[in-house]
Amino acid sequence: MSVQLNINNKDYVVEVAPMKRLLDVLREDIGLTGTKEGCGEGECGACSVFIDGSVVNSCLVPVCQTNGSKITTVEGLSNNELSKLQQAFIDCNAAQCGICIPGMLIAAQALLDLNPNPSRGEIREAIAGNLCRCTGYMKIVDAIEIAATANKG
């Protein structure tokens, strides 16, 4: 089927199988490989993207359900300049191997969109669907907290 998508503020029309996972469409048909696959079953959050403003696992969404939707991936978090959140991830050394980071950034952005001033507990809740095997989460929580502060200031 033909699917219309607005991804990172750009319009696309793709001809794909309707049940193809949004994750695969992004990576294979659009060529946006920033979104990662860690499990393919909704557990790890590496494939997190925004669909119409809400964060979901793109490995669980068939593309037919996104026809006409607005999608934001990690590539859409910044233009030329890094977002405050991305910068905070760099400054805090929040990324190690980096494979979980695209999804982590999306989940963190989703939190900050709803709650610009989260507690560390709220941050942990917001990223509980994003597994990271490298960092122990501390520096990721630090980065999100700092990004929130930067936003205020």
């Binding site: 049940m19 996972r21 393919g40 079953e41 909704g42 669980l60 068939p62 037919c64």
Partner: peptide, 23 residues
Amino acid sequence: IAGGTDLMVFYSSGLSLPKKILD
């Protein structure tokens, strides 16, 4: 299929997709 959070897991764990789907 509604949110797909159960169904998509079944299908990615090897079950084949049904021919016809009502979204």
